[in-house]
Structures are given as C-alpha cells and as structure tokens.
Amino acid sequence: MACTLDLYTDYLISSTGQTSATGLSRLFDGQLSHDQVTRWLSSVYLDSRQVWAHAKPLVRRAEQALEAADFAVLVVDDSILEKAHTDPNALLCTHYDHSLGRYVKGLNFVSLRYVAGSLSVPIAVELVEKTQAVTDPKTQKVSQKSPLTKNEMLRAMLRVVQQQVAYRYLLADSWYASAENMNQVRELGHDFIFALPTSRTAARSEVARGNGEFQALDTLVFPEGQPLRVWLRGVAEAVLVVRQVFTNKDGSQGVL
C-alpha cells in the first residue's frame, strides 16, 4: 500500500484530533507504515501546479454551467496554519497574525480561490518561506524574511492564472489593495473590489491629482448610498469608492 495525496488529504480532513504519520499507519492496521508516509511527505513538494491539476476539471465544468450574464471572481487571502510546538525552519516560523494581533509560529501561505456559481475552489497557492537573513541596523538583531512579499506573490499568481481562467473581479481585503496590484489587475483586463484603509489618500479630480492635491478617504464627503469617483495615489485609472456604515453587535458603529 502506498501513500498518495488523496489518501493523506482525506486523512487530514476526516481527523478530529492530532494527526501524524503514525496515526495514519495505525488507521490502516500497519498496512501503510509510518516510514512510508514520512518518505512520501519528504519527497513531494506541493505547489500551484498540483493545486491547479486538481481544480482544473471542476473549474471547466463550472465554466460550462455559467449562464451568459454570470461571471466568476477570484478571491485572494493568506492564512496561517499554527504549529506552536514544531521546531522552526524556513517554512514553519513566526508570522504576524492580524486576526490575533500577535506573532504566531506556523505555516503561512497565500491562496487564490476561484468562485463561480456554487463552486469555490483554490486554484493557486504560494508558501511563505523566510530564507533571507536580515540584520536590524539599530539592534544588530538577525531575523529571517521571505524573498517575495505577499503582494508580489499575488501578482505572480495573477500572471499565471490569466492563461487558465476567465474572471471579472479580484476580491481582497486592504492588505492587498496596493496601487501595484490595482494597476496590474486593470492591465490584465479585469476589475477589482478591495477594502481600503481610511488613511488611504485620493484626489477628487484628474487636475487635483496632477497638482498633488490628495486627501485621506475619511475626510471625503460621500453622497448617501452612492459611490464617489476618485483618483487614488499611484493608481493609473479613476476608481469608485463606496462608504458603508454599519452597526456592530455591541451597538458601536463601524465604517467600511
């Protein structure tokens, strides 16, 4: 009996407790040894090519099922699979978790998800590996960093999937709402829907942009229920910005 990707992922998905090569071997009453599992894990490097190979048949079926007025979107986000008790290395190391507001040790990855109709499936993934040593000039403390930023990983993935899938919008939170990302999405012939921090600066007209007259988004007056056409700093084309005010569970108000 051999360890395969389908077998191993089914084991991970169905497990409710801690997973291990020994645990998988025990599940099959020793027909699959833990050494076989360990050797397979050491020999296989999973990347976007393997992800796309599994996703492609699903995507093609979803494309055929789309009505003429329907369209697909891509969603980018990054996640951390926490591994607090694993020995650190370039792949399993400390990353800042924005949801927790602190650093955690684990596996950090950026994924690109295809959504069309009832289908939602990842089509590309990039692992964050901190392989470059960086010395703080003030403290002389040495830390590790990835040779590529998450935004650079996203732009590389978008250039590849341009040849693989058709989509109308790229959706992302404010972490990925950089001018470089916006410009690339438009250059590739697509649109985007991004969250923006209120401190992001914009000009109210092309003339104002040319004169360098930018102001923070939270200082702009938005018409009720209507988008505002502005020029964000560094973005080639004008964009529509919508301001949404909502009430949190505790009664406080938030602004998106």
Rank of each mutant, 00 (worst) to 15 (best):
M1Y: 02
A2W: 12
Y8G: 00
T9M: 13
D10G: 00
Y11Q: 01
Y11C: 08
S14C: 02
S15Y: 01
S15V: 02
Q18Y: 08
S20D: 07
S20V: 09
S20K: 02
A21P: 00
T22A: 11
L24G: 09
S25T: 04
R26V: 11
L27P: 03
L27R: 14
F28C: 03
Q31N: 15
Q36D: 07
V37D: 02
R39P: 00
W40T: 05
W40S: 02
V44M: 06
Y45M: 06
L46R: 08
D47M: 03
S48T: 02
A55P: 01
L58F: 13
V59A: 04
R60D: 11
A68I: 05
D70I: 00
D70S: 11
F71Y: 15
L74A: 10
I80R: 06
A90W: 02
Y96M: 06
H98P: 03
V104A: 11
V104Q: 13
L112I: 03
A116L: 09
S118C: 04
S120H: 07
V121K: 13
P122I: 02
A124T: 04
A124N: 12
E126G: 07
K130Y: 02
T131S: 14
A133I: 14
D136Q: 12
V142M: 08
Q144R: 13
T149M: 05
M153D: 14
R155Q: 14
R155F: 01
M157E: 12
V161R: 01
V165P: 06
Y167C: 08
L170H: 10
D173K: 03
S174L: 09
S174H: 09
S174R: 08
S174Q: 05
Y176W: 01
A177Q: 00
E187V: 00
D191S: 15
D191E: 14
F192C: 10
A195H: 00
T198E: 10
S199M: 01
R200M: 12
A203Q: 10
L217S: 07
D218I: 01
P227T: 15
L232D: 11
V239G: 02
R243W: 08
S252G: 11
